[in-house]
Amino acid sequence: MFRTILLWGTVAGLIVGSILFGTTVAMADHPPSMGIGMAIGYTSMLIALSAIFVGVKRHRDDALGGVIRFWPAFGMGLGISVVAGVFYVLAWETALAVTGLDYGAKFAEHFIAQRRAEGASAAELARITAEMKAFSVQYADPLYRMPMTFTEIFPVGVLVSLISAALLRRSSFLPARRA
């Protein structure tokens, strides 16, 4: 099972990591809006994390004779998610290093501009600016940034793991084909 987790976690991680790295480097000078960036990011996560379903199904069919219970399937999905999350974090850190992007500052600028456009008062803007400056300083620290980056992908992995385990625990769902 461990080998399967590493294999499919690596597959998912390489997919999501290469998309993250590629889009960050390609769009470093002209980044898309935050909404488009999030749509690209979460869509690539869902595509990559479909490896959870494939990995659990292959393990169920090949190693377990077509039967797997919910908790082992869910645990396997979580394991694949962790491995993929590590690749995701490494891709983000590499993209930041290659581009020299100060994402914390860019995010802070965007958030402040958004609040200003919504008509926030001067006092509220001063408070938000101070909070965003503190966030930008924290985000510059890799020990703060890396776990935060991991929490972007891991909940998606948990959701995909839950759905995969719920579906694949039924041996009648996409049964193994016997030669």
Rank of each mutant, 00 (worst) to 15 (best):
T94L: 02
I112E: 03
L7K: 05
E118F: 04
T99G: 14
V156H: 00
I5E: 03
F150N: 01
G41F: 06
G35H: 08
M1G: 14
V98R: 09
A165K: 01
V67D: 12
A28P: 08
G37L: 05
G9R: 04
R115I: 11
G77D: 11
I15N: 02
T10E: 06
G66A: 04
I15L: 04
A108M: 00
P32T: 12
A120V: 00
A63Q: 10
S81Q: 03
L96G: 12
L159V: 14
G65V: 12
P175E: 08
T94Y: 02
F150W: 10
S172T: 13
A134I: 13
L101V: 01
G104R: 02
V89I: 09
M148Q: 10
A51K: 10
Q114L: 03
E118K: 02
M38H: 01
T94C: 05
L174E: 10
L174K: 10
K133Q: 14
T23K: 08
I128P: 01
G22Q: 05
S136Y: 07
L96A: 13
E93K: 06
S121R: 00
G75K: 08
L49S: 07
L168Y: 07
P31K: 06
A123G: 06
M38C: 08
I80F: 12
I19D: 04
K133N: 08
V160F: 06
A95M: 12
F70P: 14
D141R: 06
G77S: 11
D62P: 02
R169E: 00
G13I: 02
G35R: 09
I128W: 02
S161G: 12
L20R: 13
E93Y: 03
M38P: 05
L78I: 15
L7M: 03
S81P: 04
M1E: 15
F154V: 13
I15W: 01
Y139R: 11
I40T: 05
W92C: 05
R178E: 15
K133G: 13
L14M: 14
A26I: 00
R58H: 01
D29E: 15
E124A: 15
S171N: 07
L49K: 01
V86T: 14
T99V: 11
M45V: 00
A120T: 00
V89M: 12
F150L: 06
G75D: 14
L49M: 15
H30C: 07
V56A: 11
A105V: 13
A179D: 15
G66V: 06
L90I: 06
S121T: 05
K57N: 00
M76K: 09
G55K: 15
A140Y: 06
A113F: 01
L125H: 09
A97V: 00
G13E: 05
A108P: 03
R178Q: 15
D61T: 12
L78D: 10
V98E: 08
R116H: 01
H59A: 15
G104A: 05
D61K: 11
A166W: 14
A26W: 02
V67F: 15
V156F: 03
L90H: 02
R127Y: 15
A91C: 11
W71S: 05
W71G: 11
A91G: 09
A26Q: 03
S33W: 08
